[in-house]
Structure formats: structure tokens, C-alpha cells
Computed example of a mutant assay.
Amino acid sequence: MPKGYIIGHITVNDPEAYQEYIVRDTPLIEAAGGKPLVRGGEAENAEGPEFARHVIFEFPDFESAKALYYSEEYQDVARIRRENATSMIVLVEGV
């Protein structure tokens, strides 16, 4: 079965307030079987809109990634990200 991924491109506007998002989303991701493959680090924008931060989380399958993202618990936490960052989030099924 193909794995699932949540990929985020983020520019944080309020780093102090954004920390609450990281603290609260990490346990939700882990509980859904997700693990970070990329979480920050140096990046070079080669093409397209520029974001300062990039994350990739791998899940056991696409359904697990979607279930987490659309869950009420995560959407409550995602509100913090939306209020303190500009982001683009993609849910992807791996091959």
C-alpha cells in the first residue's frame, strides 16, 4: 500500500506564536503514525512562490494523512498556523 504524505511550504509571520502550533501538532502527527522526513532546514527556492520553511511528514498510507489533516483536533491546531504564517499544504499519495 502506498504511503501518504503531508507536505507544507510555510513562511512564519509570528515565530513566537507559531511555536504553539509546533508543540500542539507534533503529538497529533505522531499519534496518526506520521513521522517527519523534512522539518525546516536550509532550502533553496529554485522555482515558483518562495516560502521560508518546508515540511514533509510520511504516514502509513494516504488515508491516515487525510484523516489527520481533516480531523477536528488538527483543524483546531491548524488555526494557529493560519493566524501566524502563510502556508500551502498538500496531501499526497506516494508510489
Results as ranks from 00 to 15, higher is better:
I80A: 08
V55I: 13
T11W: 14
Q19H: 12
Y69F: 14
L91K: 00
Q19V: 11
A31R: 06
T11D: 06
L91V: 09
I29A: 11
Y74N: 04
E93K: 03
E63V: 10
K3P: 09
G94A: 10
Q19Y: 11
L37F: 03
V92E: 11
P60Q: 03
S64L: 02
K3M: 06
E30C: 05
A52D: 12
A32P: 12
Y18H: 07
G41A: 05
V77I: 10
F62W: 00
Y74Q: 06
A46R: 11
D61I: 02
A17C: 07
L28H: 02
A78M: 03
V55D: 05
R24M: 02
E16W: 00
K35L: 08
Y70Q: 12
A46T: 10
A43Y: 06
K3G: 01
E50H: 10
G48R: 07
F62V: 06
T26F: 03
A17G: 05
K35W: 07
I80S: 07
D25E: 14
I29M: 10
E16Y: 01
F59G: 03
V38S: 11
K3F: 00
V55C: 11
P27T: 01
E44N: 09
R53D: 13
D14P: 14
E20N: 07
E73W: 08
V38W: 15
V55K: 05
Y69H: 08
M88Y: 06
K35Y: 05
A17Y: 03
V23Q: 14
I22E: 13
E58F: 01
V55A: 15
V77N: 05
L91N: 00
S64Y: 00
K35H: 12
K3E: 05
P49Y: 02
G94F: 00
I56Q: 09
T26P: 03
P15C: 01
K3A: 09
